[in-house]
Nucleic acid binder design. Structure first.
Lengths: 106, 106
DNA sequence: TTGACATGTGACCATCTGGTCACCTATCTT
DNA sequence: AAGATAGGTGACCAGATGGTCACATGTCAA
């Protein structure tokens, strides 16, 4: 599995996107803190965090018995720059808009 | 399932991303054309195209017995604008770089 | 009008995924 | 040292997903 694939797959689950949102709002949260924000057992959250870590979207640091979680936006940015950009360039967007107008007329 | 979720899930599969690439390279391809570019039976390709259509990433037009497929970048752009952007803003990226430098020093 | 061609459907199957649980280890606190 | 707290592991399960196939429909061309 490629890095890109890991990132796309990690982003495919709404719970995982929500966890990223939580870490975006406040970095350094522990598993227990994240668990309390989600309708799911600790184990479910752990599995999601593992997927996010393996995609390098979350990095961690241990502090005693706690494990602190940090959002890492770099892989998203990389995927964005070399994959999503090409579909979202302004001229492409304009063509799409035009095509839809033409279609809705017919 | 939300629109966003459909788009993210559709993008999670490498074959589907490849189909989008094919349509980005040349619009209006038929199922048979797309099938020949992929190591998979027609039926597999059909299922993938269905997922892409339901996410509105691909729109189609019939022409006689053929079905022509077109890339629609609008959903990607929407997801990008209201979700990915916030993680890829320049100052966030800069903070990430700084954090990684600090971590590698310790 | 018959045969070839393009696409569609439903059943089926193996594997992946999301989630839980019982049990375990490590760390802190008193 | 003992209890409480934070996190980790492996087994397990139901449902989703990715892929194939037999069969069927619609369309073109001679």
């Amino acid at each position: 599995m490629t890095d890109d694939d890991r990132v796309f797959k990690a982003l495919a689950d709404p719970t995982r996107r929500f966890l990223l949102d939580l870490l975006f709002a406040r970095e350094g949260q522990t598993l227990t803190e994240l668990e309390s924000a989600v309708e799911m057992t600790r184990y479910g959250v752990m599995k999601h965090l593992k997927v996010l870590e393996e995609a390098d979207l979350v990095v961690t640091r241990r502090s005693g018995r706690e494990k602190l979680h940090f959002l890492n936006a770099v892989p998203i940015r990389e995927v964005h720059d070399r994959w999503i950009d090409k579909y979202t360039e302004r001229h492409v967007a304009a063509l799409m808009d035009l095509k839809h107008e033409l279609e809705s007329e017919s």
